[in-house]
Simulated scan of single mutants.
Amino acid sequence: MDTKTKIALVTGGSRGIGKNTALKIAQKGLDVIITYKNSKEEADQVVNEITALGRKAAAFQLDTTSVKNFDEFIQNVSKHLQENTGSAHIDYLVNNAGTALYSPFMQTTEEQMDEMFNIHYKGVFFLSQKMLPFMNDGGGIINISSGLARFAIPGSSVYGSMKSGVETLTRYMAKELGARRIKANVVAPGAIETDFGGGRTRDDKEVNSFISNVTALGRAGLPDDIGGVVAFLCTDDAGWINGQRIEVSGGMNL
């Protein structure tokens, strides 16, 4: 990494949309730091793939539900950056890490709601807040939301509600960070074929067929449909996009 190269931090970057995003960002000429929760092996493979693209990369373990560990994580990242670039700062933060919850409104427990809140809202809020002193002016924050914040599918009341909260938060970020020229935007994928939620969209033929039937482009999404859009927001070409929600769903439930 050199001081002239911009750097993006992608949470949950070891697989699925996060992995694709990290690779697409690297293809744009940025160096990348990813986080992973459990699988160091998967994360190291992503680092190797980014390195093969000619960019620099590193992976750090982070449980984004545990705010108490954020300070130590940021210290480790900033130390790594200082030693390798001469600066402890990044340019872009992509809040991607998350888990699924498929539970009817009438059956959802307080524990399930708390878990969703911690990872999809509280974690996003405080990681962004704590990273701000280590972000360069003129950079950006991209929060990953979901089409489920716009349309309702039974079983996703908590997940969709948390993503709606993040979308509102993003507009506040854009307003309050404008003085530092830090943009804040939302990318909201539709249903994507990954191992997210146990691979439900990818592996359940009935679910996949339903999604295809309600999507204008006639299929479920793939990680490759999403990562490039996030990567675009990490470039100067997207420098005047701020406070926006970009849905990338192939026209789902229009």
Rank of each mutant, 00 (worst) to 15 (best):
K205Q: 13
Q107I: 05
I241Y: 02
A184I: 02
A22T: 08
T109C: 13
G218S: 09
G155A: 03
D224A: 06
A216T: 14
I182Y: 04
D44Q: 15
M135C: 11
M106V: 14
A8C: 12
S157F: 01
G18M: 12
T5L: 02
G227V: 09
T215F: 13
K37I: 12
N48F: 06
A59W: 00
R202E: 14
A191G: 11
G13S: 02
D137Q: 06
V214R: 11
E247L: 10
D204F: 05
I119V: 15
N185V: 04
K183F: 01
F232D: 04
S249Q: 11
N76C: 01
G243Y: 04
G16R: 09
F134T: 10
T99R: 14
A43R: 07
E49V: 09
F126I: 06
L233R: 00
M106T: 14
K175F: 09
A88I: 11
V187G: 03
P223L: 14
L23R: 05
L30K: 09
M162N: 02
H89R: 05
K122P: 03
F117W: 15
T21Q: 07
F117E: 11
A59N: 12
L127E: 10
N84F: 10
I141V: 14
K175P: 03
I33R: 06
D63G: 08
G178V: 11
T21H: 09
I246S: 06
Y121D: 03
G138D: 13
L9V: 12
T85Q: 13
A8H: 03
N48T: 15
G160Q: 07
A22I: 06
A59Q: 07
T201Q: 11
A100V: 01
R150C: 07
A52N: 04
N48L: 04
R180I: 12
E42I: 07
M162R: 05
R245M: 12
A238W: 03
K6F: 01
D71H: 08
L62C: 07
G147R: 10
V46S: 07
R150D: 14
E115H: 07
D237I: 08
F125M: 15
K183N: 11
T201P: 00
V77R: 09
S103L: 06
E176W: 08
D91K: 11
A8Q: 05
M1R: 10
S146W: 11
S103H: 10
A149P: 02
A58P: 00
D114C: 05
I90H: 06
G199S: 12
Q45D: 15
V229E: 01
G251S: 02
S145V: 12
V67C: 08
V166S: 06
A238T: 02
A88Y: 09
G18I: 13
Y159V: 08
H80I: 08
G199K: 12
A88E: 15
G29F: 04
T85H: 05
L254I: 15
N143D: 11
G147I: 15
M113I: 13
I192Y: 03
V47N: 02
D71C: 03
T21R: 07
T64I: 14
F105M: 10
Y36Q: 08
S14A: 06
G29Q: 12
K24R: 13
I25H: 04
G197Q: 01
D224F: 01
M106W: 10
A43Q: 03
E206Y: 02
A179D: 11
F151L: 10
G98P: 01
L93M: 00
F70V: 09
S66H: 12
A57F: 10
T168P: 00
K130T: 09
I34A: 04
